[in-house]
């Protein structure tokens, strides 16, 4: 009885008793969730265009952040450094198209997947050769003050940096959604995802589309790299946040931009709530596994994710 009460009753009593604190937990989870979404978006973009899971997405985050920090360390002003890094990511996209995608056109998606694993190792080594492998501090000048937000006569404590990150993430997401749903390039992209040959026959250049997609996902990686790098330093483990994006993708569906966002938010908020209210009961560290367990449950009951295309097999 004691245990049941501790697990199933008292956490909810706590939530109801201190609603402002609960709101604070949710808000913090929301802000972290947007950062997860940002990383997951990079995967979704490439998956939509080439039906391939880009294993290198996490390393692209690292590579972008390393490049940015490296430039800063050499005295390049932040805004210019960001501009140059965007340029580097576009160049990288062009190189990937030429060296990796073009020779593998019309191959099985699994072969492309293996190629992205190769790309992972290459980028990791290349980035560290260029910029060194020690932990670096990234500061792009986003203020990191605690903010007190008045709420129902009380105050909610938020980090200003998180708010900025959330705002930037939201703008990116909105921009990408418009880009893919309204523009000719967006329609072309969906066409390429469906059928390479037919896309070429209606006059879509595969190469252009690939360069565009990889560039965009490179820029998304850069933004994610800036946000996460500023939070936890730029080092190899930055590439591991890609692992956090996996459950987000399973929840949201690999092909859905809104799915990546909602999935990120569910996981961000869910793990925060779990950590704060149930963490003490099991000795903490719920944040580390919550996302994966949730993903596992989803795999059992809804393998296509919340927004993914239904998997229909004709026999």
């Amino acid at each position: 009885m004691e245990i049941l009460n501790a697990f199933f009753v008292s956490p909810f009593v706590d939530m109801a008793e201190y609603p402002v604190f609960f709101a604070e937990v949710v808000a913090n989870g929301f802000l972290t969730g947007i950062m997860y979404s940002l990383v997951a978006l990079g995967f979704v973009l490439i998956f939509k265009a080439s039906e391939t899971f880009n294993f290198a997405q996490g390393v692209m985050v690292l590579f972008a952040a390393l490049t940015l920090v490296g430039l800063q360390e050499r005295g390049v002003p932040t805004w210019l450094a960001i501009g140059i890094t965007v340029g580097v990511m576009v160049l990288l996209a062009m190189a990937i198209e030429k060296v990796m995608l073009r020779p593998l056109v019309n191959q099985d998606p699994f072969i492309l997947f293996m190629a992205t694993i190769g790309l992972t190792f290459f980028l990791e080594g290349f980035g560290e050769t260029l910029w060194g492998s020690n932990v670096k501090r990234l500061d792009v000048g986003i203020p990191e003050r605690p903010l007190e937000v008045p709420l129902g006569g009380d105050f909610m404590l938020l980090n200003e940096f998180d708010l900025w990150a959330a705002g930037i993430g939201a703008v990116m997401v909105l921009g990408l959604a418009l880009f893919f749903h309204r523009t000719t390039i967006g329609r072309a992209l969906r066409a390429v995802a469906d059928d390479h040959q037919a896309a070429m026959a209606v006059g879509i250049s595969l190469r252009t589309i690939w360069v565009v997609v990889w560039s965009v996902s490179g820029v998304v990686a850069l933004v994610a790299g800036i946000m996460w790098g500023a939070k936890s330093g730029v080092q190899f483990s930055l590439s591991l946040i890609a692992l956090k994006a996996l459950p987000v993708l399973i929840l949201g569906g690999l092909t859905s931009v809104p799915g990546a966002i909602v999935g990120g938010l569910i996981i961000g908020i869910g793990e925060k709530i779990g950590e704060v209210y149930w963490g003490p009961l099991v000795g903490g560290a719920i944040e580390n596994w919550f996302a994966y367990v949730l993903a596992l449950i989803f795999l059992l009951f809804r393998p296509q994710g919340l927004f993914g295309e239904r998997i229909i097999e004709r026999v």
Binding site: R190, A191, A193, D194, D195, Q197, A198, A199, A201, E309
Partner: peptide
């Protein structure tokens, strides 16, 4: 195309 190549989605 001989084998229909539409954008199925």
């Amino acid at each position: 195309f001989q084998n229909i190549a539409l954008f199925r989605g």
